[in-house]
């Protein structure tokens, strides 16, 4: 692990002192070892003052570009209908905080129930998808094995050609999965895109590691679980996030396959809040008023909170190098 390496390095040789090998470290290299608490990334460097200013500016602009609209989302969700109307639809700073939109969505227990469904579907779905994807990706990373080309093409074609809804519905119906949560998981459980990404990562790992293990007589299963998976943790986390977000955001299959509304996932329930009064041409009598802006924005906030909660666990895997010293053993 990177931080270990850095820590070891700084223990061993304080700033400026010659290394055991006797080489004087360059200033750049030295710097890795001098930062105490905030061990900088090993690839890092201390920029000059001008670059630093530019970087700070870029940082602030990026944050502002993203956060300002989100401030509006949150503020609008917390505003009264009157305040939103007066502001022309979007509120930057709420004049008075109103939780009306949230209470409207959260009372009655329907949303809580659907949240539970969504959590179950997302957790189970992501687990199933990851297992299937990693197994297949590893298998396909071994170029030249039996039927390799054909299987790879079989996967790739699913990226290019998608079945239409009706035959898929017939299959799901035929499997007896209508009105079950399986219908929300299995039909979308494999993404060729994700599979190809994981495979690409595995193939990008130093082949020497794998060869060495195989020469030592390790089974494919051992190589997969002990080498490929631990070394691909970052991409597995990312692809897990992709899968998770897909399951989390999906509403269409639930709409199609579920009759019992108590099995509806969160996004389908939230969709009804956004749709209320955004009627099709069929209702041209105007009897269904358009949804309140506050509710629309509260829906965004509610849907995004679980993602915010989960993301740090994924991010952990995006900050650490996985290969430190792996080659040296």
């Amino acid at each position: 692990m990177r931080s270990d390496t850095a820590a070891r390095a700084s223990d061993a040789s304080p700033a400026g002192t010659p290394t055991p090998a006797g080489t004087k470290l360059t200033a750049e290299a030295t710097q890795f070892r001098t930062r105490g608490k905030y061990a900088p990334p090993i690839w890092g460097h201390r920029p000059g003052p001008l670059t630093n200013i530019l970087r700070v500016v870029a940082f602030v602009i990026l944050i502002a570009l993203v956060l300002f609209p989100f401030l509006i989302v949150v503020s609008t969700s917390l505003s009264t209908g009157q305040a939103i109307t007066d502001a022309g639809g979007l509120v930057v700073i709420p004049t008075e905080i109103s939780l009306e939109a949230y209470t409207r969505i959260l009372t009655g227990g329907v949303v809580t129930q659907s949240l539970l469904v969504s959590i179950v579907v997302t957790a189970a779905g992501t687990a199933i998808s990851l297992v299937v994807t990693v197994l297949a990706a590893y298998s396909l990373s071994r170029v030249g094995t039996l039927w390799h080309r054909g299987l790879l093409m079989t996967v790739l074609l699913t990226f290019l050609f998608a079945p239409s809804i009706i035959p898929l519905y017939v299959v799901v119906q035929g499997l007896g999965m209508l009105d079950t949560l399986w219908a929300l998981i299995l039909p979308t459980s494999l993404s060729a895109f994700n599979l190809v990404i994981v495979r690409g990562f595995i193939m990008n790992l130093p082949p020497e590691l794998f060869e060495a293990a195989r020469i030592d007589g390790a089974s494919e299963w051992w190589v997969l679980t002990r080498l490929a998976v631990p070394l691909s943790k970052s991409v597995i986390a990312v692809v897990g996030l992709f899968y998770g977000v897909t399951y989390w955001n999906a509403f269409f299959n639930a709409m199609l396959y579920l009759r019992d509304t108590s099995n509806w996932p969160l996004q389908l329930v939230l969709r009804t809040y956004v749709l209320q009064g955004a009627p099709l041409t069929l209702d041209n009598t105007g009897e269904i008023p358009p949804p309140s802006q506050a509710v629309q924005m509260a829906v965004v906030v509610i849907a995004i909170i679980p993602v915010l909660l989960v993301y740090p666990f994924v991010q952990r895997h995006l900050t650490k190098g996985v290969l430190t010293g792996a080659l040296k053993g």
Partner: peptide, 29 residues
């Protein structure tokens, strides 16, 4: 086959899912 069967076993779940939920419904196209 004898040498590669572990790899083939690993890809069975993916192939099964693709067959059921992509290739068979694709016939509808």
């Amino acid at each position: 086959l004898r040498r590669d069967y572990p790899l083939l076993v690993m890809i069975v779940p993916a192939v099964a899912l693709m067959l059921l939920f992509i290739y068979i419904p694709l016939l509808g196209n």
